[in-house]
Amino acid sequence: MSTPKQVPQAYYDLLEQIQAIDFVLVELNLYLDTHPNDAESIQQFNQCSYESRKLKKQFEKQFGPLMHFGYSYSNYPWDWIDVPWPWQV
């Protein structure tokens, strides 16, 4: 395993924004499971989904892969050996 590198505060700030919007998405998903005809909540879910993808793309562009198993691309050389990984902070 590689030695952990120092990451800037922007790394943590952006990761926190991603975690917050993804929390909203989980809650909206649970609500919509029981209220499938709530058009306003569906619109909110779709807007949050867009925002989540946008934030994740920004994170990966600045700091490297965020999700594994083919959901994120890697730069050259292979980014996955760089730590800390998002789930470690």
Rank of each mutant, 00 (worst) to 15 (best):
S2N: 15
T3M: 13
V7N: 06
Y12F: 13
D13P: 01
D13E: 11
L15A: 04
L15C: 03
E16P: 00
E16M: 05
Q17F: 03
I18R: 02
A20I: 07
A20F: 05
I21N: 04
D22Y: 00
F23N: 13
V26P: 00
E27W: 05
L30A: 15
D33Y: 02
D33R: 15
T34W: 04
T34C: 01
H35D: 09
P36I: 04
P36D: 08
P36Q: 05
N37W: 03
N37M: 07
A39I: 10
A39N: 09
E40V: 00
S41I: 03
F45T: 02
Q47F: 06
C48M: 10
S49H: 05
Y50M: 04
S52Y: 01
K54I: 02
K54Y: 05
L55Y: 08
L55S: 01
Q58D: 13
F59I: 02
F59G: 01
E60T: 07
Q62Y: 07
F63G: 04
G64M: 03
H68C: 07
G70H: 08
Y71M: 05
S72H: 02
S72D: 01
S72T: 05
S74Y: 04
S74H: 08
P77I: 06
I81M: 12
I81S: 12
I81K: 12
D82M: 07
P86A: 11
Q88N: 10
V89E: 13
